[in-house]
Design a protein around this nucleic acid. Structure first.
Lengths: 206, 206, 206, 206
DNA sequence: GATGAATGAGAATTCATTCAT
DNA sequence: TATGAATGAATTCTCATTCAT
């Protein structure tokens, strides 16, 4: 399943990239405040810094904006993650680092991540799978890190625990964003990383 | 912060309760499929088994439907939870039971819980806090169960770990619902409970 | 090929009929002046005497208005024609009468007929055949009148002449409407009927 | 009433003529399929083989395209007609020839003629008379041919019959184009000419 | 002369809400 | 109480036209 292209009327690739970047930035700001459905295309255009007519030179439908937003954010999250993860190393330390890095990325891109998780479900039946697939790829990255640890004898987990753990990590990252109204009152990101890592690694029974 | 009442034109309390029950049931079915924003009031009325005119005898605005849905579901989840939790007992076994019960409730009410988490953000600035408060109350319930265990010396956790753990449990329950497309392919609810409990209790390092 | 129904949201059949009559009347007035494409749905609603919202309770799309207009006018033309034509009689006099009646109907319904012929082509690929079929039915009516005359020995025409003659009569009726700007300056409808009938019957060579 | 000029920004007359020829050809193809209103200026430009910017170097408004199309087609029809008609001869044979020639021209230029008759009404109040005038000129040509026959004693027709006959011929030519879906299934152009000529000349009563 | 990106007025359509019956 | 027809503000999307390059 390859990327799903959103066709633009404008032919200049460079320009398309530039305008879409403006668009995504504007849209995230807007969606964060009002959500996708309550944001009008005119508002999106305005927040992007161009006219409604211009907006439609770069997308076909309103939903394309949401798709571009989700697609781009996932790519960025994953890219930043890949840069910092050493999948093969197989040490507990490298797993800790991976978790820490992921949580920090999510923290840096809070608005984007929040928007993505809250609005992705509004994507059409055709577009949704492309985005869910990216979610899966991220879980897979953690699975492979964990697997390395298992292979190296650092961890003893069966298949199911391994898989579940990967999901838990992903979800705990998201949780930092979408339960922010309570968590971020009580913890700094460093504290959150510290305690969550501890709970994950050692469990609650000594 | 007490419950926020949704006023009805109809006076007969019994009737109001009955109609709203129909409404919530119809709305959940609808929202699950199309989401709150894409569902029209006409559709909600139809799915509820009465006319659009009648619908507006029992709510003031479309958003009231969403509020009633979220409010009712939370109440039901919490009620079923309270029935099965023994907060004071303070044994690991009682904590396990609480987790297991909660996961099962979430499993039974999957559609409702899914709808609630995906659509609650569409509530207005005024209604949202009432719903978030209920979320907090549920986390508090787990916090108190954990606290009992700490008090009884069964667990050694600091304040922050205790709080975080409660959140993690809540979120892992939700996760069973909203990551269902992948988790429920791989696990039965019993397996999910088993492995998650293990990960929570023992951690991953032997 | 039966009639193509245009669905209405409103259920009261009587009301639907009434509103659609208003609609057709308003639309004809409007289309006569500006054509279908230059008339907006708001203008159609206003000319019909109700709001834009109400308009859409009785049609699904703008094109439905055009379809209803064409469909209704054809029905009315044909109905008025059938009432006055004696297909079986087989005398030259009855053919003359048929022509005369048809031309008078077209004259009475000038605006409607003009609109119909100028705008019918704007119907969608699905709706067009239903309207063209009615056109054919009208030509067939004349063919049968002519055939009776042939059978009775009043006329000597082969198949092709018979068919062509029927078409010519239909088109000459339309011509009175859509070349009105020149014909109606020079002739009254009675004169037009008189001279056209003469040209048809006797030809131009004594 | 002289020709109405459509001003171009481009000065080079030769270029203007060339571009407009491309334009008319492209536009006819397009209008035939979708009609004037449903064709966009971008599509017209594309079908003409140049960009939207260039299109507007040769016209002022979209309507100018339609005017140019109608104007040019009429000129061509008339030109081809004049070449083959001997107005002064005054024989029945020359009238037959004129009819036959006209019908053949219309047959050769079917698409153009169809487009012209279906879309001319979309011209603005200012442009329409210029086109209608050309229509009249064509009817006049036939009137003069018929008049010659009357003068030479070949035909006995009064003023009104003469005028009506000219119109009938024009309309029967158009009819070959816009009732093509039924006529061209039943006749070749030669047959059509043959039978129509017979009906016109001899009438239907022996 | 040619291009095509930008613009925004305008059009179709939807849908929450009201209110007379 | 129940109904459903009526309303019109709001929304998405289109497209003729302009103008800087």
């Amino acid at each position: 399943m390859t990327r799903r292209e959103v066709p633009a009327s404008v032919k200049d690739e460079r320009l398309v990239k530039m305008r879409r970047d403006q668009m995504i930035k504007g849209a995230v700001t807007l969606f964060k405040e009002k959500g996708f459905h309550r944001s009008t295309t005119r508002e999106i255009a305005k927040a992007s810094g161009f006219s409604i007519g211009t907006l439609y030179e770069y997308i076909r439908q309103k939903e394309d904006v949401l798709y571009l937003v989700c697609d781009t954010i996932y790519d960025e999250v994953r890219e930043r993650l890949e840069k910092n993860i050493d999948i093969k190393q197989g040490t507990i330390e490298s797993l800790k680092l991976a978790i820490s890095n992921y949580f920090r990325v999510v923290n840096d891109m809070q608005d984007e991540v929040l928007v993505m998780y809250q609005e992705a479900k509004s994507l059409s039946k055709e577009a949704l799978p492309y985005v869910l697939q990216k979610e899966n790829e991220m879980a897979s990255m953690f699975e492979r890190v964990i697997e390395s640890c298992i292979d190296k004898g650092e961890l003893q987990l069966n298949e199911q625990e391994k898989n579940l753990l990967a999901h838990n990590i992903i979800v705990q990252g998201q949780m930092w964003g979408f339960r922010r109204w309570v968590l971020q009152k009580q913890y700094t990101i460093d504290e959150y990383i510290e305690w969550q890592t501890k709970l994950i690694l050692r469990g609650i029974i000594s």
